[in-house]
Write a protein that binds this DNA or RNA. Structure first.
Lengths: 168, 168
DNA sequence: CACTATCACTTGCATAATGATAGTCACAGA
DNA sequence: TCTGTGACTATCATTATGCAAGTGATAGTG
């Protein structure tokens, strides 16, 4: 996307994608969650070209998802560790894993979420934190929030009028 | 990404990204969830160029996330509706909304998930469907599944050995 | 019947991003 | 001195993106 600003209508999805919208960024985060932290870790794991890795790490650091830390002085060596913001991306990643396992893993699951102690499989679902109710349509839907632009507000009615069966 | 196969280690995240890994694809799905279905809907909502829209819709249909349906014969007119596979992408989208709202919405939330009946705000969190336990580290972690390749299996031990504090 | 509008797209082309290959630099150990 | 590791840059070809403009089929209006 050349002109990100054109799409910045305040939508949190578009905003998020400005930071993690590229292939490699998400794959890098995935590896960071499994403990990768050094340039070479990412490079060998991902098979990414070094220049690409440099570029992606740079944007992730700028976005505040990774922090670049010098872990050695004599030979200057760096590591990239998840910030709090980066760590909180985990639910998205795990939801993506669940979806991918469900729909794009014909030969079975190659990775899955498990209980770290018992090793029992977990099945990730999205619920409301307070009530614990399953977050699904049509019980729940998207609505304009307090900071919604006029455009946003309009977007969340016209479709419902034209198509009563609108999802979300 | 030029050579998807190079990255297809069976990882469900990489697999998912092959289908929805581009900016526009996710934004199109977002709009599909709010009821958009026709070419023009997407175009005016997103401000996307028509050729780009054609390309993205094509890949989404090929991936089985959208279905192209002719809704008019006399003038041939089409609509794009979410398939089941597409609809089940909703948790990822909502997790992304929650994350974006949390970290990239300094001026407040422009959209949010609400109870469709009461209008009350929901706070999306990921839990285990069976036990209802919050899916977070270190209680839960990623592990190699039954269909994991040798490479995958190795990936989920070496890091834990080198860095005990590895985030799942 | 000419004229305009709607919808769902193509085509062509300039610009930008991606990715492969090769090279750099600072040190460390043998 | 020679080899090796870690973390990169530089260069350049290939691809993808995105803008502008055009197309074709039909429908409605004066």
């Amino acid at each position: 996307m050349r002109h990100k600003s054109l799409n910045d209508t305040g939508c949190p999805i578009a905003r998020s994608l400005e930071h993690v919208g590229e292939w490699w960024s998400i794959l890098i985060l995935r590896d960071a969650f499994t403990g990768a932290s050094r340039f070479d870790d990412f490079q060998t794991n991902l098979g990414i070209a070094p220049n690409m890795l440099t570029r992606r790490l740079k944007t992730l650091v700028e976005s505040g998802l990774l922090e670049k830390r010098r872990y050695s002085d004599k030979p200057a060596r760096y590591e990239y560790v998840l910030t709090n913001k980066g760590r909180e991306f985990r639910p998205v990643l795990w939801a993506l894993i669940a979806w991918g396992n469900e729909h794009f893993a014909p030969e079975g699951e190659s990775i899955m979420v498990i209980d770290a102690v018992t090793g029992e499989r977990a099945e990730p679902v999205l619920v409301d934190r307070r009530t614990g109710r399953l977050l699904q349509a049509p019980e729940f839907r998207i609505a304009a929030g307090p900071a919604a632009s006029e455009r946003m507000r309009r977007r969340h009615a016209p479709f419902n009028e034209r198509k009563p069966g609108a999802q979300s």
